[in-house]
Amino acid sequence: MSEEVQDARQLTDYYAQMVLIRRFELVADQMYKRARIGGYCHLNLGEEATVVGLMAALREQDYLFTTYRDHGYALARGMEPGRVMAELFGKSTGVAKGRGGSMHMFDAGLHMLGGYGIVGGQIPPATGAALALAYRTTAGPEAGAVLCQLGDGTTNIGAFHESLNLAAIWKLPIVYAIVNNRLGMGTAVEAASGEPDLYKRGASYRIPGERVDGNDPVAVRQGADAMLARAREERRPGLLELMSYRLKGHSVVDPAKYRSQSEVETAQAADPVPAFRARLLQADVLTEESARAIEDDAEEKVGAAVAFAENSPDPAPSELFDFAYAQDVPNAPRALPGDPLEVEL
């Protein structure tokens, strides 16, 4: 297979994943509004290129930790759309058995070790995972590494700096990927960060940083590839800043009134999905027909995902204490509200 053909397949695949994420998130938005989904629901709309580019760079042996804006990562890392949607629906077939919801996608087998709802909460554990890799494996091109995705607002958290410092002094195989969508909820990066060039924020720890266009999956992949290679082979952590933009509000229920109309128009003009489509059409990688086939396929997959989620059983209350502890322990509480204390004498 020629390199050109291989590239074309890859690019087509990127587009297919981006379309799947786009479709999934639009439907998730609808399902939230139809009250099929509860709690918070943060969408990757506008961040599809970033997600797909990062996941393309990640290998099977690598580990992934993300923020709570994690549906796209779950899909791109290989989770069944039906099980991701089922998790949003709180069903027992969900990827976290309905216990995590939107913010907590997880699949141990796929080394996706969680979306984390506490901002910055994923960074120290991700760093620890890199420590475990460093402790157990030898550096080399095939060694595993950790990708820790985070948002722009997270770079001001202590855990971020403590973790970068640990990764630097312990020489850990980890790449911290900042998805800079310019807004921490409604606060602009410039308003929140003393150094708004976020890729420079590893400088205190001598961690090299790089900024790439988050709307281009190929650029994202290339940037991530280079940093992950340094992590695998040299055990050098890296800091990758991906310039992106949210098409919608912080979460489904956020009308994003804090953005000006011109900002929104600029963002929509730069929407990575149609942009990438046009680029592939222009490069003859896609035809209008093949593009539409990909889009129809995504629509069908997401429709099936909703059907799967709808038809999945709710977790039974009797399963409430199933995962109280990984290892059984005497006297573990099992009382429901108002139950008398069970004391076996």
């Binding site: 930790f65 070790l113 960074i123 120290p124 620890g128 995972a129 475990a132 402790y135 403590e162 410092n165």
Partner: peptide, 22 residues
Amino acid sequence: RDTPIAEEGFVGAAIGAAMLGL
């Protein structure tokens, strides 16, 4: 392993390392 003075960081790191089986 001596750690820097960074309780949140190294306790979290221990949790992450434990997730991988240490």
